[in-house]
């Protein structure tokens, strides 16, 4: 609906900036506009079907639940734009959550050190991925499938075989409750918005950001053009690890005072789904973090809407699957038209 309304100007693709003659794509992609429309339509329809949906008691938990997937998705977007993939993020969440929860329960660590600890652990695991992918000359999916298992082992070892109980509400600032919002806006989502804005600017307007598109388009050509491909790629995985470490804190904050060892399981697929629904090309070289956040919002809207409608909650996976197919199909059609035009 709103996809048609703002009507992007004809021939919107390349716009020349005044000074350096740089060519930049239009700030908002078609896919993002479509997503805004789809989410808006869904919210209206769900609001009409179940009046409780559009109340803040329903929207706030929705935004809070979107936050970790969106945050991880931002990192994965950068990785996928650079032509790689990271399927180990679910296990990184497990390790970070286990370490953070243990630190809070066992040694009573306060908020800021917990956040730093979790982010640092995430960054370290991301560094492992990054070094192996960038310098090992092995396809990213193989490396991250391997580290998925290795990190899972590490996380389960930290867990020590059972759940972690009695986690103090240190992280409540990122939770669902009253402590988790200012003026009704959840802090976790606010943080996601800030990170997304920073990532958007960095990817679009800094040389380093443009390098990721170049690497994803053609790594060989990027190298010959003087881009330090390996450090760049390494950085993408470290970034994903750092963001995943932060997301792990969100996950703890959303849960109860008990953390089960299945935390983070399958999160990598949700994150990749959000990225792809957001219009990022899985083959690299094209994509945006705004789309990813919208994709995560769409996925979570569907999940929460289905629960509110009283349908079996597992049905949401079916819709996510259909959305992925539709998103990719629309993208393929658009590419085909661009090529023939």
């Amino acid at each position: 609906m709103s996809a048609a309304a703002p009507a992007p100007p004809r021939g919107s693709a390349p716009r020349r900036a005044a000074g350096g003659g740089r060519v930049l794509p239009f700030p908002v992609t078609g896919q993002e506009l479509v997503l805004v429309g789809v989410v808006a339509v869904l919210w209206v329809v769900l609001g009409l079907a179940t009046p409780a949906f559009l109340s803040s008691g329903s929207i706030v938990p929705l935004l809070v639940a979107t936050a970790p997937i969106a945050l991880i998705g931002i990192g994965v977007t950068v990785v996928i734009i650079s032509g790689g993939i990271d399927v180990s993020v679910g296990s990184i969440v497990l390790v970070c959550a286990a370490v953070a929860a243990t630190a809070m329960t066992a040694s009573g660590l306060p908020l800021v050190p917990v956040l730093l600890l979790s982010v640092a652990v995430g960054g370290l695991l991301g560094l492992v991925n990054g070094v192996l992918v960038a310098y090992g000359r092995v396809h990213a999916i193989i490396i991250t499938f391997g580290t998925l298992n290795i990190f899972r082992f590490v996380g389960l070892q930290v867990f020590g075989g059972s759940t972690i109980d009695g986690i103090p509400p240190v992280l409540a600032v990122f939770g669902r409750g009253e402590a988790g919002r200012t003026l009704g806006v959840p802090h976790s989502f606010l943080l996601v918005a800030v990170v997304a804005a920073l990532a958007w600017v960095a990817l679009r307007h800094t040389a380093g950001g443009r390098h990721y598109y170049a690497i994803g388009g053609d790594a060989q050509a990027a190298r010959l053009a003087g881009i330090a491909v390996r450090p760049r790629v390494l950085l993408a995985y470290v970034l994903t690890g750092l963001l995943t470490g932060l997301a792990a804190c969100f996950v703890i904050a959303q849960g109860t005072s008990t953390l089960a060892p299945n935390v983070g399981l399958g999160l990598e697929l949700s994150a990749i789904a959000a990225v792809v629904i957001g219009g990022t090309s899985i083959t690299g070289g094209r994509g945006s973090v705004l789309g990813t956040v919208l994709g995560a919002l769409l996925v979570q809207t569907v999940a929460s809407g289905i629960i509110q409608l009283g349908w079996p909650s597992q049905l949401s996976s079916l819709f996510i699957g259909v959305f992925i197919i539709v998103a990719v199909g629309v993208d393929l059609l658009r590419q085909r038209r661009r090529r023939s035009a």
Binding site: L269, I272, A273, I282, P312, Q314, L318, G321, I324, V328
Partner: peptide, 27 residues
């Protein structure tokens, strides 16, 4: 036939099939 990337296609059908498997006999 439609040129979809395999990783994403099978991610989508992974979601769809596993959801149907659970819904088909209500768990």
């Amino acid at each position: 036939y439609l040129g979809f990337p395999p990783l994403i296609t099978t991610l989508a059908t992974y979601y769809a099939f596993s959801s149907l498997a659970i819904v088909i006999t209500s768990q």
